[in-house]
Design a binder for these strands. Sequence first.
DNA 1: TATGAATCATGACGTCTGTCATAGTCAAGG
DNA 2: CCTTGACTATGACAGACGTCATGATTCATA
Lengths: 193, 193
Amino acid sequence: MVRSAAQLIRRQGVSGTGMREIVAEANAPRGSLQHYFPGGKEELVSDALLWAGGMEAGRVKRCLRELESRAPSALLAAIVDNWRRDLTNEQFSVGCPLVAAAADTAATSTQLRDAVRQAFDGWQEPLAESLVDLGVSVERSDNLAIVIIAALEGAIILARIRGDLTPFDALVLELGPLLDAAARPTRRPTPGR
Amino acid sequence: MVRSAAQLIRRQGVSGTGMREIVAEANAPRGSLQHYFPGGKEELVSDALLWAGGMEAGRVKRCLRELESRAPSALLAAIVDNWRRDLTNEQFSVGCPLVAAAADTAATSTQLRDAVRQAFDGWQEPLAESLVDLGVSVERSDNLAIVIIAALEGAIILARIRGDLTPFDALVLELGPLLDAAARPTRRPTPGR
DNA sequence: TATGAATCATGACGTCTGTCATAGTCAAGG
DNA sequence: CCTTGACTATGACAGACGTCATGATTCATA
């Protein structure tokens, strides 16, 4: 049910998806709404956003674990590849639920804003840790994690709108060397590329 | 009227703002809706999105014109500063209308999707041209423009959710040197910053 | 001054929204 | 057997939505 909510939010935003639509998509009984989510839509959407944030954090950790090369650019490429497959499978009709909620309801509901913030924090933290693990200095890891998330979210939006994957290519191509350079701060960054 | 629509979409997304709300915000007569926008909500929102895209393109051109240093990082900093002021003035309750529409209605309405795409293209083009003007090679300018827009959009989202400007700082700090390095491909990029 | 188009005003329509009240089913435990 | 609690079903509510029909108004031009 929470998963169905997240999926629909990914596609149509928060205020664009109704509760009846969610229970229909989840093949769930409508009467369960007031029983499992007595807090109403805010509670259900909050749970969906936190769940989505957990998925994102797990994705980062899994990508780091399965990495063959120990370069930060490889981690970036792996994460981006996940989204590449995602958008392709869904024919560019979905985005990130966190972004949708941020654009939709951040100004309206404090509870949802906090949920999105918490989800993003829980995403940024393992990403920054992974960067440190790959040789990035602790000082820059936070900033770089923020830049990666920001650029990735933006690329998702652009790719979705354009209907092609070039924003992802641009991201990996331009940001990858930057990350690798940050991992080896003594040498000059990617001299002969 | 179009401006009011864009302003409301910035705050609550497309499906979160009603037509009656728009005419109220614009202090416009409700009867004018069917006369000036016979295409209904899709037409009004389309116009608002294209208008917002034009604003963004104009912002890029103005920033380039008023630039004192001829470094790409200075252009980035100027554009980001604009958004910094914007979010601060509105107390982090607004985002970018293009992002909101992309998250909201890209999967629903082809017309709106096309409007967003056109707006983004009209933003990317002058940005890439500006980069070339500042010394970036034509080959990389398109990719870098995409990365800048993506990272900026993501930073807007993150800043809005967090309620502070650190995403903007991270963006300028990490992406600025990358751009300057791309502008002078022979030397090593910004060695002692 | 008369005429026709442009603009505005307003009420109504059908549908959808989130929420709630009420009644129902059903398995577990006294 | 009967009660208790968790879960489900369904209908109704008040409100908001986008859209349209019908008039009233304004206003330039003939």
